[in-house]
């Protein structure tokens, strides 16, 4: 395997983006920032890969206009996944492993505010037996949360502790769309939204975009004084059928976690769009209490669809760059109730 590192990361997240659903206007400054961090320019990037969704944007081929942000003239080697851009990072990592590229720029974007996100996501369910009922995302998460509470796996207090820590940490994150800790007691005193979930248990609807620059070997050392080397990256998916899954678990997260070495992880950025899902992930990944989770504030502070997972990897890389950790974990999820999961471990060398 070739040594590949995260050497650049830029993001924009906000409650409502006043611009086009292709988010070109966000991608232009993000890509510029990634160039500035790495000293690379367009011609230094061997491969481009992005993640986004047509249904989020409300039209077919929504990613097509986004490539304008690259300025892809002359043509570029480029690919697109209809997935969170964390998986685009995986495709770019693969491309570098084949030797066909030494550098890659990965981006993801999503303007959730263009539609009604919790309703749009009902289209991710079984189209014959579920979507016609339009179960919304928040309700599904609430069903999952209650299963865990009834089984004694977690309680509302544990969920509130996740929120309290996230929103407190989010105060230091300029891209947080929700922040401000209070107290667990205060959080629990707030009204229930989708019983047993309160609003703060659910990631806020967020618009935004993000980009990550990958580079191999010496190219990485050229671009960064302290590259965040990818020591492992794996992913896995579970069956969707909610009725035959144990919804208090995420086997795909456990499988992905088993594919990398998590023993030395100091900081984990977990893509848990609902507070109880962080508790599930910690268990599935076997993260001990010494592991610091989501110092960025995590998805409960800002959760741009189709970039949120990539942002977790970017935040995990930043902890390496700023010297605050030697080994970090970035995690991404997709699909209903932690159906699909990716883990990426980063380390200083």
């Amino acid at each position: 395997m070739r040594d590949v590192a995260v050497v650049g990361f830029a993001q924009r997240q906000m409650p409502v983006f006043d611009g086009s659903p292709t988010c070109v206007e966000l991608l232009v400054p993000i890509i510029a920032e990634a160039y500035e961090q790495t000293g690379f320019t367009k011609v230094d990037i061997d491969f481009w890969c992005s993640g986004s969704s047509d249904y989020l944007a409300g039209r077919a081929f929504s990613f097509v206009a986004a490539v304008d942000a690259i300025g892809p003239t002359p043509p570029v080697a480029e690919s697109h996944l209809e997935m969170d851009a964390a998986w685009a990072l995986y495709e770019a990592w693969l491309k570098i492993q084949t030797g066909q590229a030494d550098t890659a720029l990965v981006y993801g974007f999503g303007k959730s505010s263009a539609g009604v996100l919790r309703r749009t996501l009902a289209l991710q369910l079984d189209p014959y037996t579920m979507t016609p009922l339009w179960p919304d995302t928040v309700s599904l998460a609430a069903l999952q949360a209650r299963l865990g509470i009834d089984a004694g796996l977690w309680d509302e207090k544990a969920m509130a502790e996740v929120v309290q820590r996230s929103l407190t940490d989010a105060e230091k994150n300029e891209y947080a769309v929700r922040s401000g800790g209070s107290s667990v007691a205060d959080l629990l005193a707030r009204p229930v939204y989708a019983d047993p979930l309160r609003k703060h248990d659910c990631a806020p609807v967020t618009d935004g975009a993000a980009a990550i620059v990958l580079a191999a070997g010496d190219r990485a050392r050229e671009a960064s004084d302290r590259p965040a080397w990818i020591s492992g990256i794996t992913h896995s998916v579970d069956a969707l059928h909610l009725g035959s899954r144990d919804l208090t678990r995420s086997p795909s997260a456990a499988r992905a976690g088993a594919g990398v070495d998590l023993d030395e992880v100091e900081v984990a950025e977990l893509h848990a769009p609902f507070s109880h899902q962080e508790l599930i992930l910690r268990t599935e990944l076997g993260l001990g209490s010494a592991v610091q989770v989501n110092p960025s504030g995590g998805p409960l502070a800002a959760n741009t669809m189709f970039a949120g997972g990539l942002i977790r990897i970017g935040e995990a890389a930043r902890r390496i760059w700023d010297g605050s950790a030697g080994v970090t974990l970035g995690h991404a999820t997709a699909g209903p109730l932690l159906q699909q999961n990716l883990v990426c471990t980063l380390e200083v060398r």
Binding site: L81, W87, P127, H235, S236, D238, A239, G335, Q340
Partner: peptide, 29 residues
Amino acid sequence: PDLFEGVMMPELYLAEALGAAGKPLLRVH
């Protein structure tokens, strides 16, 4: 485009039928 079938990322609900459950799954567009 997902609009053709009206299913957002259909590979998710198809994962089991395609024999992908328990494995890495990618969706290209």
